[in-house]
Design a protein around this nucleic acid. Structure first.
Lengths: 122, 122
DNA sequence: CTGAATCCTACCGGATACTG
DNA sequence: CAGTATCCGGTAGGATTCAG
């Protein structure tokens, strides 16, 4: 059976989704879109983000060329992360999601409450 | 420095991300944005989507009011899923991601190859 | 300070079987 | 056809420890 390209296993849509699906990546990209930051600063900014996931996520963002890493030979070492031009284009696109969220989340929440109430009634 | 609301644990941005992070949800929303479909049709359209995840994802989409479910008392029963107006606004927003993917994924892939090559060299 | 490595657990999600 | 229930393995990811 042949599937439409748009929904086969390795279409562009899926590939970008696998990246966006990483919520830490999106959050970090959003932060770095504002200003460059260092490792522990990022760690403190994002609530609930473990050190392991931070390192791991920064690695993949760097690999994708969405974020750049600069190390300075101070003592102790200083490392700064910054968004790249490519990263910025994605951040801008993703920002549309934030806008959607802010204007529609109340409605979604209301829907959930209603759904749960109807469920409980049955 | 006080954490910006945007990155605390339950901000709107995070909530929408938790939804977008579910790639099956996004894929289904995209399909239903085109035309209403029945359960097994959706199952056939999306490669690699298990029956369990399909049912589960449809439940949560319905709960959020992004998709509507209509059952018809035929024999055997017929159930049709359709996108709601609210769902359509999200689908449109998410579509921007697809556009980004199609124009920038080649560059990302190139970056990955270069990163891996430099890594291997070291 | 910026990580990498190890361990360990919770949960995601696939396979299978059963029901209205 | 449209699901739900159960089992169960793989893995994401947290906690902890160590290193440059």
């Amino acid at each position: 059976m042949q599937l439409p390209d748009a929904y086969s296993a390795n279409c562009p849509t899926r590939m970008v989704l696998d990246r966006i699906a990483d919520k830490w990546a999106v959050l970090l990209l959003g932060l770095l879109a504002r200003e460059p930051m260092r490792f522990n600063r990022l760690r403190r900014e994002v609530e609930g983000l473990s050190q392991k996931m931070l390192a791991q996520t920064l690695r993949s963002l760097e690999r994708d060329g969405l974020v750049s890493r600069s190390a300075f030979a101070t003592v102790p070492v200083t490392v700064e992360y910054a968004i790249t031009p490519l990263g910025r284009t994605l951040a801008d696109t993703v920002d549309a999601l934030r806008v959607w969220a802010e204007s529609h989340m109340p409605e979604v929440t209301a829907n959930q409450l209603r759904y749960d109430a109807e469920k409980a009634a049955a």
